[in-house]
Write a protein that binds this DNA or RNA. Structure first.
Lengths: 142, 142
DNA sequence: TTAAATAGTTGATTTAGGCAACTATTTTTA
DNA sequence: TAAAAATAGTTGCCTAAATCAACTATTTAA
């Protein structure tokens, strides 16, 4: 690979890291940190998920995760149910309140995306999305 | 904007955040944090830069930056030289050791990019870069 | 049946980063 | 030109995010 190509990739990475950082500021205004929202999303996507699964998919420390879940439980956003087959494992579910809280952040994020991208023409939006999908498809292959 | 489009963008953002996170692990193995490397890069790109300029371009707190620079000075990676025309301002330069340290991380990053992207064919690499540039060009407009 | 592995918790600590007050200058303004 | 405002950088204080290691309880493998 040519140095020039590497530079272009690194340049895009720096650029897009800024974009993502900007978007993440939404969470900073909310009551939940970025990681907390990601955890909520995991439980929302897959009700009954185990802490261990979240740990693996989000790659976060189990002690840290345990504390986040404890906070959620205290706020009555999740319920924990011990597995019958493996009493070490605990099924996690969002309560109605937990769902509500998650969806609020989720909606705010949608709005934010919409706001930012509405600055571009529909054709440009379409191009952006196509290029994003292309990149994702290639990178996902390996 | 349609919900489906918003979802695609968010999906890409999540996906690419992981890619960036993966790449950033290089820094985590090095002795320097991501922000510290960014600061080094700024001084490397523009020798004699002021702390204030770095603050503006990287958007980091001046107290935090001051501490980072102090660390670099202590490790003899940079030199500080008071400006003659404005004695509040301090010119920053990398020492030979500072350059060496920076280039080590920089080289490791290049190698890492090269390693990851060499899993793809040249055509795919070209497509990736083209799509990255396209996205960057559109987003930069506004 | 004992050893190793696994799920989760807890305590102690480190690090990143923000905020505000401060010093020392320089610039503006009245 | 003297006082006020702005600017560059430092320092102290603080909080939230995250890591690490030790621990309990349980399950699986040797």
């Amino acid at each position: 690979m040519k140095q020039e190509q590497i530079d272009e990739i690194r340049d895009f990475n720096r650029f897009y890291a800024k974009v993502i950082g900007l978007l993440d500021k939404t969470f900073l205004n909310s009551e939940y940190s970025l990681t907390e929202v990601r955890v909520l999303l995991e439980i929302y996507k897959q009700s009954g998920i185990l802490a261990n699964d979240i740990m693996n998919s989000l790659q976060i420390d189990k002690g840290y995760l345990s504390r986040i879940l404890k906070k959620f439980e205290k706020k009555q956003m999740i319920t924990k149910k011990q597995s019958d087959t493996d009493r070490r494992a605990i099924y996690l579910e969002l309560t109605e309140f937990g769902k509500k809280e998650f969806l609020e952040v989720d909606t705010a994020t949608n709005l934010q995306i919409d706001t930012i991208f509405s600055h571009f023409s529909e054709a440009e939006q379409q191009t952006l999305i196509e290029n994003m999908n292309k990149i994702k498809n290639i990178l996902q292959k390996k």
